[in-house]
Amino acid sequence: MGWELRHGNRWYLYRCRRVNGKPVKEYLAAQHDRLVPGFGAVMADQLGRLQRRLRHLRGLARQARSDVRGRIDDVLTLARDANAELRVASDGLLAALGYHKHRRGEWRMKRDVALLKDAIRALETQHAAGPGPLVNYTAPEADAEAAEVFAKSRAGDAGAQARLRVLIRDRNWTNWIGDLGVQATHQLVHMAAAGDVVWMAGIAEKVSALIDELLGEKPTVLEVLLARRVINGWLATHALELELAVRPPAVPRDRAHLDAALSRAQKRLTEAVRELARVRKLQAPVILAQLNVAASQTVVNGGGSGAPAKV
């Protein structure tokens, strides 16, 4: 929108806009002096205010779309990162049992089972440095001893670090601090419930029931890891489905983004379920249980004064 001087001494007010993608100049008013109050000046002032409001509304719409995409991406990122850690652990156990991925596809038993010992040793010595902690663990307020041990351990005190592992076992905090899959499930439950305590309790109970149904009476470590991947995939998938059902994005591009995210979450869930079924079909949990029994019998019957090292 602007004034143009034409015919030597007369000002004309025009508004520029687009019609079907083409620029169009629309005549609004005219007067001899654009600085003198008149109909044209009043119209120019009102149109200027209207354009500023429209710009503000467009900014709010962009921010709303950005918030929707941010929530969607947070759910996918959390589920992906959690399942990546669980996949490494489950794949490592399968490799240690003598399995390999045939042409990067299904797990199959290796013909040369003599590599089992080397694979286990490689898993024990493998260490990858990562970024800072994703979850900040603080000692309970009423537990002064734990608070002191936590602080000294993080400061580099070797004695406190040795005491820390004993403290975690004595307090039965292994699942609280040590289990990444459980922690990822807690974060997904909290995100899906959006902070509502009642809803969070209901989701947590449903997750516990699903885990019990998946694991059965005597699950192995490998089954627990794979079942946790299934649970995390289930949470991510249904959280995005609920987002699509209750708060569908108004903009088609944002809705397409949510649909694509939901498809990726469903694919991860399907892969996790298929992996658990394959492992049970291969009877890998049975072999793992037999190895655990054989190892315990070796320790008992082998004598010796040294206790097995704990990881």
Rank of each mutant, 00 (worst) to 15 (best):
E106Y: 11
R55H: 11
A89W: 00
Y99R: 00
M43Q: 13
N83P: 03
R108W: 11
T77I: 10
L78F: 00
H100M: 12
D73S: 11
T77S: 13
R58W: 10
H100E: 11
R69I: 09
L57F: 12
V88R: 04
R65P: 01
R69N: 10
L115F: 07
A114T: 07
K117C: 09
D112T: 01
H102D: 13
H100A: 07
R80H: 07
T77V: 13
A84V: 10
W107R: 00
L97M: 13
P37I: 01
N83G: 04
A82N: 05
L57I: 12
G98W: 05
Q46K: 12
G92H: 03
A61D: 12
V68Y: 03
L57S: 06
A96P: 01
R104L: 09
A64K: 03
L35F: 13
R49Y: 13
L94K: 00
L60V: 02
L86I: 08
G98D: 07
V113D: 08
A64N: 05
R62K: 13
G70L: 11
R55E: 15
A44I: 05
L78V: 09
L76S: 10
L116Y: 03
A82V: 12
N83S: 11
R58A: 15
R52I: 02
V42Y: 04
S90P: 02
G40C: 04
V42W: 08
V68Q: 02
G70Y: 06
S66I: 08
R111C: 09
V88E: 03
L54E: 14
V88Q: 06
D91C: 11
G40M: 02
L116K: 07
R80C: 04
G98I: 05
D118F: 11
V42I: 14
V42S: 13
L47G: 01
R103F: 13
A96T: 02
R55L: 15
D118T: 04
S66M: 14
D74V: 10
G105P: 07
N83A: 10
M43K: 11
Q46N: 07
L115A: 12
H100Q: 12
L54K: 03
R103K: 15
R80I: 08
G98T: 01
G48K: 05
L116F: 03
A61L: 14
G105E: 07
T77H: 10
R71Q: 05
A61C: 07
R55F: 06
K101L: 13
R108E: 09
G38W: 04
Y99H: 00
Q46E: 14
A64H: 08
Y99S: 01
F39C: 06
L47I: 14
H102G: 04
Y99W: 11
V68R: 02
G98L: 03
L97T: 00
A84F: 13
A84G: 09
Q51W: 02
M43W: 08
Q63V: 09
D112C: 00
R80L: 14
D67F: 15
G38A: 11
K101N: 08
M109T: 13
L116T: 10
A79W: 00
K117A: 15
A41W: 04
H56L: 14
R65S: 09
V88A: 01
R55C: 08
L78P: 00
T77Y: 08
A95W: 09
D112Q: 06
M109Y: 04
A44P: 05
D118E: 15
T77R: 15
G105V: 01
I72D: 00
S90Y: 06
A84E: 09
L76E: 02
R108Y: 11
L115V: 05
G105C: 04
R69T: 05
L93H: 03
E106D: 01
A114W: 09
